[in-house]
Design a binder for these strands. Sequence first.
DNA 1: AGTTGATAAGAGCCATGGGCTATCCAGTTC
DNA 2: GAACTGGATAGCCCATGGCTCTTATCAACT
Lengths: 209, 209
Amino acid sequence: MAKPAPPARPRARFVRETPDVRRQTLINATARCLAEKGAGGTSVRAICARAGVSSGLLTHYFDGVDALIAATYADVGAKVSTAISAAIDAAGNDPKARLRACLLANFRPPILDPDLLATWIAFWSLIKTDPRMAAIHTDVYGETRTQLEDLLRRAAPAMTEAQVRVAAISLTALVDGLWLELCLDRSTFTPLEAQDMVEEAMNQALIEN
Amino acid sequence: MAKPAPPARPRARFVRETPDVRRQTLINATARCLAEKGAGGTSVRAICARAGVSSGLLTHYFDGVDALIAATYADVGAKVSTAISAAIDAAGNDPKARLRACLLANFRPPILDPDLLATWIAFWSLIKTDPRMAAIHTDVYGETRTQLEDLLRRAAPAMTEAQVRVAAISLTALVDGLWLELCLDRSTFTPLEAQDMVEEAMNQALIEN
DNA sequence: AGTTGATAAGAGCCATGGGCTATCCAGTTC
DNA sequence: GAACTGGATAGCCCATGGCTCTTATCAACT
């Protein structure tokens, strides 16, 4: 069928971007949508409206909205990893100072951010049903733990591999638990208190071994 | 308007239940839906199909699906609290044994359960947008922490109030972080290892003070 | 400058979601 | 046993969701 009515309003102008730029724009818009409206409010239309593109673009550049969310997960994970690495490098060369910086960076922006938790929760909610998300989570968590184990080995060379592994898991869990509760409800304790608790646990792990 | 076509199939039989039974049935169905299909797959129709009732009942007994989810949050939180209290009572009268039981119960069924995490994640995802959920969360978390603080005081009477508070927050965070990661991915470490880590942290908190 | 082909827009399609309501039936009361 | 009360059903309405498809637009190439 031929379209009977010509468009009353001319079609909007647009600029042609490279695929990388477009994908990044969509990923950023997805992260903001997840943060502001949660997983339930993150629809194709909402993402594309925020990105300033039409809804057809999403399917054009990603294999559906689920794939876009998975890509956003990987991207946000990489951003967090970068922020932590930057904090480590800024701490200088002392192994203990570097370990400390790695742990405490979790309680400062941009990582200590309720919006980031909202994004993360959206990812967690998809791990159960989407194997791709589960794979990304395993990657991200494993990378973080490996980095922490490396810092621990340098800060306490006397530790055995088993001790390093347990300490890394334990410190990661403590950090995650404090971070989670801080993002959910700031009224219980402060980021500084959380940092003190983590530092205390870190010293215990180093002293014991 | 009168209905023009008489129903080809007679209407289904039904049984009349008390409001409490119906509400509990719907709450249980909601918890199972959240666990199996995540927050995204938990619709009015899915809940009611699982509960074996028609979709109109949900609106009849709850003020929309959000209210039902909030009720489910409160119910699941109460169940967890009950399980922990039971573990504490089963530990006898020794204060340290009771504290230990409270902490370690988090790594045994029914609390260590990926389905439970799925339910919890659904709740977290609503805290940001629904003040009622935030209020319930504050209640549940506060109650848990108060209970832990009480056990700590009895196990280590020499601790100051500030020390008790910090220890409770810290131990809760460690437990939550380990529990979270265990539910997300069992391959990283085992529940027994998690219990050992928590016990170690508990002993540290008790010895120091 | 004209041509070309991929990029982008935007309306539309079908499915699903939540809530509403007219209708029906099980248990109670007289 | 008959009328009554209110729990329970099932279908409907409208909004929104993801995705497709056609058409318009732009930038590179000849």
